[in-house]
Nucleic acid binder design. Structure first.
Lengths: 194, 194
DNA sequence: ATTATTTCTTGATTCATATCAATACATTGG
DNA sequence: CCAATGTATTGATATGAATCAAGAAATAAT
């Protein structure tokens, strides 16, 4: 069950068996059933979570009670409220399992410890965040440059199985659209394909 | 003139005099006058630039020839087309000086060298990208959650001197607005303040 | 100084998407 | 099985921002 996690690490750093043992002592495993929360706004984000199975989403709620999805995290991804994790301020984010999920948690203390105990961990984190930064930059420019229709089709091309795993209104929220608008966009797309 | 650069590095890592010497051997200095380009679309991004003086912007041009500003980089910031830098594919970004500027360039080969020659450089980069990732996440959620007026006032509160240094139509582009819309938003704001 | 160029403002109109409202459809739970 | 809840569709209308167009203001160039 830690295999996914060590696999992920191995992609950004060299990882010895001894180091794996150190990791094992500094992580914990958590299971969430669908609809359960890893974090709710107002709490402090105590750990970074690696998703070894299932899927989570993080979202914000605005004054009008609209949800805005920040991130989906299927297996192989990390999720947290980074800002709260680092500053230890209260979080404005909610993180919820949208499938039954298995998580590997790294607490702040453990993270700090691992950074010095496992030298390659800096490199891993560097590559991890650099990649995350690049993806986010693409997402932002897509928001600016693409039409609503293109945003949706591009999302499908990158994550083809997303419609099977994520309800449509959440996809709409992730794209910054109302459910109604996404429904109409899809209608147009399917008419075209006939 | 390298002081700004070493200061920046020191904020994320410990930096010995010996390491400074290594850096000096692996960086180059470049001056750009206003309107000159560090990178134009179609080229390969050969280096990451640290802005020690002045200010640059990176932007994309869409099919309708509209510019979309991705980033402003005043002194103390890094700028590049990360994607092109890493993959060595051609860039779709333009990077232009919007003031007379002084840059410190790190080529790809140097970057790779420095990562191993200066152990703390991983830590620096990790923190750098982690911070950049968090800022970008805020920018994205602001785009989703704030009204046009709020986007502008928030930008002003974070970068109060931006109106002095950056033409208004570029601020509009950065916020994803047309110049006309920003002009009208400002009019409303100033009427209110009377 | 005077012209040229860039930047900003203002008005009229169009367009895309949000909003509001109702209904259909699907899934879950007692 | 039926109610309850959650999810998706569809229509009518409102709204905010884009677009088109013209002119004013500011800045730079000769």
């Amino acid at each position: 069950m830690l295999d996914n996690f060590f696999n992920k690490l191995s992609k950004g750093m060299t990882l010895t068996e001894a180091e794996k043992a150190i990791f094992r002592q500094h992580i914990s495993v958590k299971r969430l059933r669908k609809h359960q929360y890893l974090l709710q706004e107002g709490e402090i984000c105590k750990s970074v979570a690696f998703v070894s199975k299932g899927m989570l989403r993080s979202y914000l709620v605005d004054e009008k009670n609209n949800e805005h999805i920040i991130q989906f995290a299927p297996e192989g991804w990390f999720i947290s409220d980074l800002n709260s994790f680092i500053t230890e301020d209260i979080s404005s984010l909610n993180i919820e399992a949208i499938e039954d999920s298995e998580l590997i948690l790294i607490s702040k203390a453990s993270h700090v410890y691992l950074e010095t105990a496992v030298p390659g961990f800096y490199k891993f984190n560097y590559l991890q965040y650099r990649g995350a930064y690049m993806s986010l930059q693409k997402r932002l420019t897509d928001m600016f440059m693409l039409s609503t229709e293109e945003k949706y089709t591009k999302l499908l091309s990158i994550y083809p199985d997303i419609t099977q795993r994520v309800p449509q209104h959440m996809i709409a929220s992730y794209l910054g659209l109302t459910p109604e608008t996404l429904s109409r966009v899809r209608k147009k797309l399917f008419v075209k394909k006939d």
